[in-house]
Simulated scan of single mutants.
Amino acid sequence: MNDAATHLPPGAQLLGREWLGFDETGQIALIRFQAQVAFTNRHGTVQGGFLAAMLDSATGICALAKLSPDLTVVTKSLDTRFLKPAAVGPITARARVMEQTERDMVVQAELIDTKGITVADATARLRILSKK
Rank of each mutant, 00 (worst) to 15 (best):
D3N: 12
A5E: 06
P9S: 12
P10D: 03
G11P: 15
A12N: 14
L14Q: 10
L14Y: 08
L15W: 05
L15M: 12
L15S: 01
T25K: 02
G26K: 05
I28H: 09
A29E: 01
I31S: 01
R32Q: 13
R32L: 03
Q36T: 09
V37T: 11
A38S: 15
R42N: 11
G44N: 05
G44S: 04
G44P: 03
G44M: 08
G44D: 03
V46T: 09
A52R: 04
A53T: 14
A53C: 07
D56I: 03
A58L: 06
A58V: 01
G60W: 01
G60T: 11
G60E: 02
I61K: 05
I61N: 04
L64Y: 10
A65Q: 05
L67C: 10
P69F: 05
D70M: 00
T72N: 11
T72L: 11
V73W: 00
K76D: 08
L83P: 05
K84V: 07
A86S: 15
A87C: 08
A87M: 13
V88Y: 02
P90Y: 09
P90G: 14
P90K: 12
R94L: 09
R94F: 02
V97L: 15
Q100K: 15
Q100G: 10
T101G: 07
M105E: 08
V106H: 04
T114E: 15
K115H: 14
G116S: 07
G116Y: 05
T118W: 02
T118F: 01
V119C: 07
A120R: 03
A120T: 06
T123L: 14
A124V: 06
L126G: 00
R127Y: 15
R127K: 15
L129K: 13
S130P: 07
S130T: 15
K132I: 00
